[in-house]
Simulated assay, not measured.
Amino acid sequence: MRKAGQPYPFDELQRPLIMAHRGDPVHAPENTLPAFESAILRGADALEADVHWTRDGVIVVIHDEVVDRVSDGHGRVRDMSWSELRRLDFGYRFTLDGRTFPYRGRGIRMLTLRELLTRFPEARFNIDIKPKDPPSLAQFVREVVECRAERRVFAASFHHKVLNRLRRIYPQLATGASPCEAMAALARLHAGVGLGRVKYKALQVPPRVRGIPWLTERWLERAHRAGLAVHVWTVNDPADMERLFDLGVDGIVTDDPGQGVAVRARWAARQPREGGRTKWIS
């Protein structure tokens, strides 16, 4: 589907991909080592994670710009040093029932990007760069390369300027479309107009707009003809997963990767086989 010679970390993996959103936040504190370990154990194909920079320039794995929701601390990541963040309990607020906190006091600490990439040397990653103006994208690239992960990392961001700068610094790194690039692609593909040459490898889109499912089989076919993968976020309902698999998406991002793997297995068992294997395996 993609042009020869273009790096894409998810080649050779079965599709549709199950991409673990912040690890496995249904069963463990999001963006922590237990969450990523759980996602791998439950069969996720790729790990989705988010990064910010500390005050002293360490790239750390966290979704929010503040630590309040996921730890026993308070404040913005960019205002705190790495040593300050390491003292916080990132299992403190995780609960399954609203009453008990099974990871509280168990030494769950924040991860650095380096720790994440080296802890899972075979894993594929979708790394979402969260800041609008990161202190150093060159540092991000350097750490990815030094961890020998440049062919295992797919970079994403909601900020167009961030992705453009990243592409200029290291064009070999695969990136997703920014929101403005995605919107332009959506309109052109719906109109049946070609995209021409683009700088991204995948469109990562929500399954609904204003509550209405908008993805169609024809639109997906056009995206695929343009050489693009389509990943859909964040999908947690089994019926939605199956509907998207039927349409032909290349992957879903989910909070419950174990459920996603199970739904995909049931769905795949019903698919026709071509050449001795199910047609959705790449």
Score class of each variant (00 low, 15 high):
I212K: 12
R124G: 04
V162K: 08
H27T: 14
H27Q: 11
H160K: 10
P29I: 09
R264L: 15
P34I: 07
V205L: 15
A177Q: 00
S83N: 10
L166C: 14
G107K: 11
F120K: 01
G248L: 09
G43R: 08
R22P: 05
Q6G: 04
Y8Q: 11
N31Q: 05
M241L: 07
R266E: 10
L88W: 08
P171K: 10
D64V: 10
G107C: 09
V144L: 01
P131I: 10
V145M: 03
G194D: 14
F125W: 03
R277C: 03
S282A: 14
R78M: 09
T234V: 13
A182M: 14
G251C: 14
A226P: 11
V205W: 02
G5P: 14
F245G: 07
S157Q: 08
D256F: 08
H159R: 12
R55D: 05
A44I: 02
A44N: 02
M110E: 01
R15Y: 00
L203R: 06
P206R: 12
R168D: 14
V205A: 02
D72T: 03
R15G: 00
R78A: 12
A35Y: 02
A39L: 10
A44L: 05
E12K: 15
F36A: 03
V205Q: 01
Q139M: 11
W219N: 11
P257L: 11
L137E: 03
H159V: 07
A191W: 10
V205N: 02
G91L: 06
I108V: 15
A184F: 06
A155G: 08
E242W: 05
I40E: 10
P272R: 04
S38Q: 08
I252T: 02
W267F: 12
W280V: 13
K161I: 04
G192Y: 06
G43K: 11
I212H: 10
P272V: 05
R87W: 05
G194S: 15
C180F: 07
P207W: 04
M1W: 13
D68K: 08
V61K: 01
L215D: 00
H74C: 06
G105S: 06
V70P: 01
P206F: 00
I281S: 04
R93F: 00
L173Q: 04
A268L: 11
K3V: 15
V67Q: 04
R188W: 07
P171A: 15
G23P: 10
G248E: 06
H74N: 11
V253P: 02
G91V: 06
A239G: 03
